[in-house]
Design a protein around this nucleic acid. Structure first.
Lengths: 160, 160
DNA sequence: CGTTCCACTGGTCATACCGCCCAGTGTATG
DNA sequence: CATACACTGGGCGGTATGACCAGTGGAACG
């Protein structure tokens, strides 16, 4: 194994290839990478088994779904409420796409989408209505300068 | 069309199914959804054509790659520097997974990962070294309460 | 130095899926 | 009423898939 993370150059090239053209199959990957099909299969199995590649689920674009407004909302919680139950309450709001507990002044950071700025207000109101939320600070994402990516990281981890 | 977004119940069920078991094929989907294969194919094509489903790329887990530390960094930029060139500079740092321009006190919000807290400092230093960055405010993500999801949103858009 | 382990190769096999085609039907639209 | 559209259910050839195998080369270990 090339590095401690267990990802080598071939793994990285494989992920890169799949990232670029997700529809191609194992056989095609093998051809392009210049290795045997069984090798690609084994690598892929191992990457999935190790959790490096979670899955190949469909990546849905909220904007195309009609939710072009993205915002990051920092929540301040009442100390007494646990983060777990809070997360469960937030999970009931479909527009909450993501939530993390964080350090700093706030307690939780959420990614929220909405159809319009006006509806964003509505979503935030629903968040605020959750028991235990003291305050919500919102910043609206004006533009996605770097869309979510992991490829450079994979290459980095592979050593190059 | 059921709704203005162009996603109906069947679309939603299809996405949900693919989300749950990404490896199954069109035929299997058709069987489980109780519709003809051609229908599934047509729906899927349209979803992709409309951009609702971006692709089926591999979802890489940075933690499994050896980058368990996630942080959100808010950047204040010198007014003179454009966001575009700034994004390009940030894009050269593999650990920067995402970047948005935002409203509020800060100018950009980035998602950053690192191997350790100590290395996080190093990554932030590299960000700060970029021309035009005046200040960086960092919050570390302690736990991912709600991992990135879009399913509830899809169901919502489909009307339930 | 020999042994053992492991990954990769390159080949086969039967199965099953894929993309594409078609005619027929039901339904909403104009 | 005519049209357009979506879905059905069927069939077609081509091809990938997953599984399996023997053989090879390198690295680690006693």
């Amino acid at each position: 194994m090339t590095s401690g993370t267990g990802v080598d150059g071939l793994d990285a090239r494989l992920i890169e290839l799949l990232e670029a053209e997700p529809r191609i199959g194992v056989l095609e990957c093998a051809r392009r990478l210049g290795v045997a099909r069984g090798t690609v299969q084994a690598r892929l199995d191992k990457l999935i088994a190790r959790g490096v590649v979670r899955d190949f689920g469909p990546r849905v674009d909220p904007a195309a779904l009609g939710y072009p407004v993205t915002a990051f909302v920092t929540l301040e919680l009442r100390q007494a409420v646990g983060h777990q139950p809070m997360a469960q309450r937030l999970a009931r709001i479909p527009e909450v796409l993501e939530a993390h507990t964080v350090t700093g002044a706030g307690d939780m950071l959420c990614r929220i989408v909405a159809r319009t700025n006006a509806e964003l207000q509505g979503v935030i109101d629903r968040v605020l209505a959750s028991e235990g939320v003291l305050r919500a600070t919102t910043v609206i994402a004006l533009a996605e300068q770097i869309p979510h990516r992991t490829l450079p990281l994979v290459k980095e981890a592979a050593g190059g």
